[in-house]
Every structure is written in structure tokens, then in C-alpha cells.
Design a protein around this nucleic acid. Structure first.
Lengths: 318, 318
DNA sequence: TTTATTATTGAAAAATTTTTCATTTATGGT
DNA sequence: ACCATAAATGAAAAATTTTTCAATAATAAA
């Protein structure tokens, strides 16, 4: 009963495709030349693409990994993945530097004049700021989202990161004048009553882009290095509860779910829930130790943009 | 003094290209995902095509010659060239049949309901009509543009061609009831006074598409076959004046310029000048003897559409 | 033959893409 | 430091392309 599909006119498909894609005629010009209707030309081109008469390929320049990026983006619903070449897979510090450069480029590319930029802490982010070209952006606003880490005398690091960034952007800066983690909940309560701290906290909801490192709880990681940020007992406890790592000292499991623990009560900084409210969270991390924690962050949709290396990336898409 | 061109961001070019051509996002979606402006996405895609990051190829199915067609179209300003495979280059009659089929397909593809179709005469056109599927087109109108050729008893051929075509299209028909060539100018004058003849002549300016054969003045051509259409003396005279062949008995030289001769005065049919006024003139011809005359017709822009075989075509683009 | 069903069609509407235009930006020379 | 210049930019306008819609057309079954 139905009208059977008309056999394809290969000659016409080919001719239209050539005129459109090789001679760069508009579909209107083609319609006139070949006596067809507007819509028919459009539909012929569609079919020519479907039938493989027209082949469109994107060649990847060497050192780029667009397929890995696409795979990450699709699998983990990222708005963007940036995969850089790990030139020396052994060296974590070299890798951090490369990731920092990539993150700096990304920041400059996406920077808007009215951005409210949240910044956590970490080696890689530190390299990011180091690699950043100055770019005056008076309307921007840098906000520290986690208190200073480590012993008081090194607290400058966290603060300094933000300060340098705001300096490079010539923009407003809001620091979080507090330690990242305190010994007792009571101390935290006291600190939270400080008006400067409260001011920073109140800004969290206005952040529209955050740059965060992703930490793996290995013995040589920064947070464990001198035992002063987190004790071994606490780390053990977190690991027992399934922690695979942290973002801004908020530990989570392989599915990106926050770990409920006493540690969490003592951290002064943004929560994972608040982080998830931010439109764009850029995670910068790579290296063999970080695979599990990055995967957790991805699965829990804690980040929307991932900047990593090609070896880590290929593990993540397995 | 000038601002130097910014080095291309290969990563971005590649990424945008992939998203657009492989993931089929719209430029709007890309702009949102990568935080770019509408125009920038468009411009990046342009550059990616220019730089060869995006490669678009049209593959030719076997038996088609889109490159030859494009070359003919461009070199001779044709609106369309159709090149068919000459399966047996030796046989002129087989070739005519194939060209006829192609011409019939072309006619059906381009037929509009209000077409006024001029038809000349020739073996190939005869095959075209023979190959034509019926297609009722009540608004169309077939017009004979050259008188009947050959001895009176074979005059039916020319007329019959038109009649059969009009029959297949179920459309109006205007015949040119006269011989294609007469012995004396005086006779022509007399015939032109006939109202039916005048009616046909008056329609020439309304023709919007004409199908014509292209004749080569070789001893075995149809017009010479029995000496009754044209005498040997006259052919000699035409050749001396540079004639390479004819369309509808109007002889022209290698540049498509009409040959002024006594013969011309005695032909009853459309002139080359009138032919050139027609929006679309479809020439159907192929074979080794016809190369020079086809080239003349092309150079003189006597036709806008050429239907030929791949061997002839490749000679023509040399 | 009629009928039911679905492909195909072209015009118009909607969506998308490209270009234009005015402005901003980055740089080398003064 | 300050021009002068050409590149780069984004918003809006213009151009182009795709989709929708209602109508037509083509077939096989009844």
C-alpha cells in the first residue's frame, strides 16, 4: 500500500554535493542551476552526508586529543574537557606545570568581565596562576573558597594564590581570613562569626566559575606532607568510609558522594553542595594517583570542566 | 605598527570543528559550551576549513564523472554538464541511445508545468523521446523549432518526434508545417506567409528550454546521407567558410559564430541568435566526430547544458 | 476500480549561520 | 609615553539553511 522509497539519484546527490562543498555555491544558486526547490537541495545534501557521499573529517594536529576530550565530555556530561600531552609521565611536578599552563589558557579564553571566580588551593592551581598572562578585567572578582592550609606561617600560600590572581586580573579580591581546617568545631564556630569570613562565605553563591584542584589522599600528598593539616588517624577513618580524595578538603567517595565525618565539621570553606550550585567548576588534575578521585568527582558531577593529561584521560574513559 | 596576526589556537579550532561536524552541535550550543561569541564560532570554523583541519570530500560513485562535469561547467559557463559513461566507444548508435536516456532523465528532472519546450531534430533526440517515461504536464507546450528534414516522405520524423513528446507529456503541441530547407529563398518567403508557420515562429521567443542535437558535417551524417537535404557543393562551401557543424541546420564555426551563406537563407527554423535568447538550451551529443562542433557550440555559448559521454568530455576539457 | 498508506514535494516559517559595522585591542614606531 | 595601524571582537543585520506543514502523488491490497 505504501509508496515505496524512491531509489536514490546518485548522480544528483554527487553533483549537488560537489557544487555545494567544492564549488561553494549556495543552495539557492544550486537550486537555480539544477532547477530544484530550496528544500530539495537541502534534503539532497542531508542524504548525501548520510549516504557517505560527502565525508567530513576533522584531523587532529599532533599533541592534541580531541577524541579523548569528546569521550570524556560525553561520558561525564562535561561542558569541556581539555587533555594535554603528558610529556614525562613520571614527573608529577612537570605534569602539574603543564596542566597549569593549560588551565591558564582556559581561564584567559573564557574570562568574562563580570565573572566571580572561586579559587581553591593546590600545586596545580599555583602553577596556573604562575603561567597566567596579565589581563585587566576590572569587573571580575576573585573569591577564596577554602581557608589557608598548612601551618600558619605557610598560610600565605592559599591567600597569595588569590592575591596574585586578582593582581593579574586587576580585579576585586575577597579573601577567606581563616585556616582551612581547625582542631575543634567550637573554634570553627568562633571563626565563622567573624565578619570578613562571613563576607566571603556569603559570596559563594555568586561565584559563577570556580577553579579547583583535586586531591588524592596519598602519604606524599600536600595535605599529608607534614601531618599538620590532617592526622594519620583521620585519614584512616576517611579511607575506611570510602574516601577517594577531596576537593577543597571536602572528601568524597568513588561516586562523588560526600563522606560524613568529623573532619568535615572542622573544615572552613565551601561545601560540595555549594560547589555543585556553581555554573562552571573547573577541575585541574592529572597523574596516576589521581585517577580514582577524578573519576569520583566526575561521576558525582562535582566539576563541569576537566583539565588533565592524556594518560589519565585514557584511563578515565575505559 | 599593526597588530600582528594572532597565532592560531589549534586546540580550539579542532575542538570546535569536532563539536560542529562530528557531534552535530549548533554553533549556538558550541558558543555556550566553550564560552565564545556566535561570530567567533563561525569564524573559527571558517579558519578550520581553510587551514585543512576540517576536510570535506565528495566521493564519486563509479560510472559518474562529476569532476569532468564540473570542469566543463566552469570552463564553458554551463549551468549543467551531464557526462555518461561511453560503454562501447566504437558504436555511435549505442552512444546515442545512452545519451538519449540521460537526456530523458534530465528532462523529467527539470520539467516544470509551464515549460515551453523547443525541439530540434536528430538521432539522439529521437532516442531521448523513446526513453522518456510518460508524465502528464498539462501546462507544458512543445514547439517544433526546425522544419521537417529530408525528403517529404520522411518528413514525419521531425514532426513525429514532437508529436510523441507532446503525447508523453499530455501537453500542447505546436508543429512547424514546412520543410527544414527549401531550394530557393522565394519558396521560403512563400512558406513563411503561412499562418501556421508564422504561429510557430512567433512562439520561439516564448520557449524557455530547448533540446537540440549537434550535427557534424561528415559524409555519413544524417543531413548528408541521401544528398537531398544538402548538396555536396553547398557542404564544401560551408566547410570552406569554416563551418564545424550545425544546430538545427544553422552552421557555425569553431567559435560558435554563425556562418553567413546562401544555405542559411533557405533554412526554415530558429536562428542561432534566437536560440541564444532561450534561457536554457540543452545540447545532446557525443562521439569522436562531434568534438569540434560541440566545442564550437560551447565557445559560442549556444548551449547552457551539455549532455555527452566521458570520452568526448575529456577531449573537451583538454 | 477504489482505498489506505506512506514518500515526496514546495512554500512558508523557523532556525541557524555569516557578514557587516562600529568598537576595542595590541603592537611597533615616533 | 603616545600615536597610528591593522587585527580582533561582539552585537545586530543580513543571508542562508533546515524544518514544518499541508498537499500531492504513487503504489499495493481489497
Amino acid at each position: 500500500m505504501p509508496r515505496p522509497k524512491q531509489e536514490e539519484d546518485l548522480r544528483l546527490l554527487t553533483k549537488v554535493s560537489k557544487l555545494y562543498y567544492e564549488e561553494n555555491l549556495t543552495q539557492d544558486e544550486i537550486m537555480e542551476r539544477l532547477q530544484l526547490s530550496r528544500s530539495k537541495v537541502s534534503r539532497l545534501l542531508q542524504r548525501a552526508r548520510e549516504r557517505g557521499i560527502v565525508k567530513i573529517t576533522v584531523v587532529s594536529p599532533p599533541g592534541l586529543f580531541p577524541d579523548l576530550e569528546a569521550e570524556l565530555e560525553n561520558r561525564y556530561h562535561l561542558s569541556e574537557a581539555i587533555v594535554v600531552e603528558a610529556r614525562d609521565p613520571q614527573s608529577q611536578s612537570l605534569l602539574s606545570r603543564e596542566l597549569g599552563i593549560a588551565a591558564a589558557n582556559y581561564l584567559l579564553r573564557t574570562l568574562q568581565d563580570n565573572d566571580v571566580i572561586g579559587i581553591s588551593w593546590g600545586t596545580t592551581l599555583s602553577y596556573m596562576v604562575a603561567a597566567l598572562q596579565p589581563r585587566p578585567t576590572p569587573g571580575a572578582h576573585v573569591v577564596q573558597i577554602i581557608g589557608g592550609l598548612g601551618p600558619p606561617e605557610s598560610e600565605v600560600h592559599a591567600t597569595d594564590l588569590c592575591r596574585r590572581l586578582a593582581q593579574l586580573l586587576q580585579c576585586r579580591l575577597t579573601l577567606l581570613p581563616a585556616p582551612g581546617i581547625v582542631d575543634h568545631v567550637e573554634v570553627k564556630e568562633a571563626i565563622l562569626s567573624d565578619s570578613h569570613v562571613r563576607h566571603a562565605f556569603n559570596l559563594f553563591s555568586q561565584i559563577n566559575v570556580a577553579y579547583v584542584g583535586i586531591g588524592a589522599p596519598t602519604p606524599d600528598s600536600v595535605i599529608m606532607r607534614d601531618g599538620s593539616i590532617l592526622s594519620w588517624d583521620m585519614l584512616d577513618d576517611l579511607l575506611k568510609k570510602g574516601a577517594v580524595g577531596d576537593i577543597a578538603l571536602r572528601f568524597f567517595d568513588a561516586w562523588g558522594q560526600a563522606i560524613i565525618s568529623e573532619v568535615d565539621q572542622r573544615v572552613i570553606g565551601i561545601t560540595l553542595e555549594q560547589l555543585r550550585q556553581i555554573k562552571r567548576v573547573v577541575g585541574v588534575a592529572g597523574g596516576p594517583q589521581k585517577i580514582d578521585v577524578i573519576r569520583g568527582a566526575l561521576r558525582g558531577r562535582l566539576i563541569n570542566v576537566l583539565i588533565t593529561d592524556h594518560i589519565t584521560a585514557s584511563q578515565l574513559v575505559r
